[in-house]
Every structure is written in structure tokens, then in C-alpha cells.
């Protein structure tokens, strides 16, 4: 997989989440994702960006345009140096929230995207990487 271009943004407040959403929207439109998939990707980005802000105490997002021989995609990385997630399996369960959320963000993002990867270490931080692919045209 090759990274064609990337854009980095800090996530420090609510406005930054809007900016991330707008950037993601721009890239998904550029890649000609269907309206349904654009909407899914933007919602996933919104969930993960909010987790970075609320649970991770702020961090950054990296929006990448990635290619493989047969397909092209958008990859989103959300990183923070926050408290980390002690029990990943639990965090991924639908309905589990340590805050006042619905507890559907992580599981939802996983279902909305094609690839989902999460790394987390207690007291060090969390990195979530998600990708959605589309065929080259």
C-alpha cells in the first residue's frame, strides 16, 4: 500500500472535529465514493475524532489517500497520548461507555469502515486506524 498524500490536523476542540469532518468529506468526494459511503466515512471520522478529544484528551488525525494495485482508499489515523484503553475488547462492545456516550463509537466505526485497527497502552495513548476502499476507475 502506498500513501499518495496526507493531511495532518490537531484535535483540540469541538471546532477541530468539524474541520476533520470537512477534510474527510473533501477527500471522499475526490475519490468518488458513493454518497452512502461518503456518509459512512464521515460519521466514522466524527466518532473517532470525538473519542480522541473526549477520551484521549486531544490528539491528532491524519487523513491519507492510499493506493494498491487494484484499489484506492482513504485511511484515517487518530492518535492521542491520553489515558489509553485498559480493556480493548470491552471498549469495542456496543453500549460500553466510560463516559456519558452511547458506547457505539468504536464498534460503529469498525462496521462503517473496511479495515479497523486499534492500538492502545494504558497511560501512553491510543491509535485507531481505519480504511475504506473503492475500486480504481
Amino acid at each position: 500500500m502506498a500513501v499518495k498524500s496526507q493531511e495532518e490536523r490537531s484535535i483540540a476542540n469541538e471546532d477541530d472535529i468539524l474541520d476533520v469532518r470537512n477534510s474527510v468529506k473533501r477527500v471522499t468526494a475526490l475519490l468518488n465514493f458513493s454518497l452512502v459511503n461518503q456518509t459512512k466515512i464521515i460519521s466514522a471520522a466524527s466518532e473517532l475524532a470525538r473519542n480522541t478529544l473526549e477520551h484521549g484528551k486531544g490528539g491528532k488525525s491524519i487523513i491519507q489517500l492510499v493506493t494498491e494495485p487494484e484499489r484506492i482508499g482513504i485511511r484515517l489515523i487518530f492518535e492521542d497520548t491520553g489515558p489509553g484503553i485498559p480493556d480493548l475488547a470491552r471498549a469495542l462492545e456496543d453500549g460500553y461507555s466510560t463516559g456519558r456516550g452511547m458506547g457505539l463509537g468504536l464498534g460503529g466505526a469498525k462496521r462503517l469502515m473496511d479495515d479497523f485497527d486499534i492500538e492502545s497502552k494504558e497511560n501512553e495513548g491510543t491509535r485507531v486506524t481505519v480504511t475504506k476502499w473503492t475500486e480504481k476507475n
Binding site: 456518509t39 460519521s43 460503529g108 462496521r111
Partner: peptide
């Protein structure tokens, strides 16, 4: 909208 409906379902709401 249909795309929002689908997203809601995937989120599990």
C-alpha cells in the same frame, strides 16, 4: 435520507 438511515443502522443506534 437513505444514506443517513444506513449509517444509523451501522452505528447500531
Amino acid at each position: 435520507r437513505p444514506q443517513i438511515a444506513q449509517t444509523i443502522v451501522h452505528l447500531g443506534i
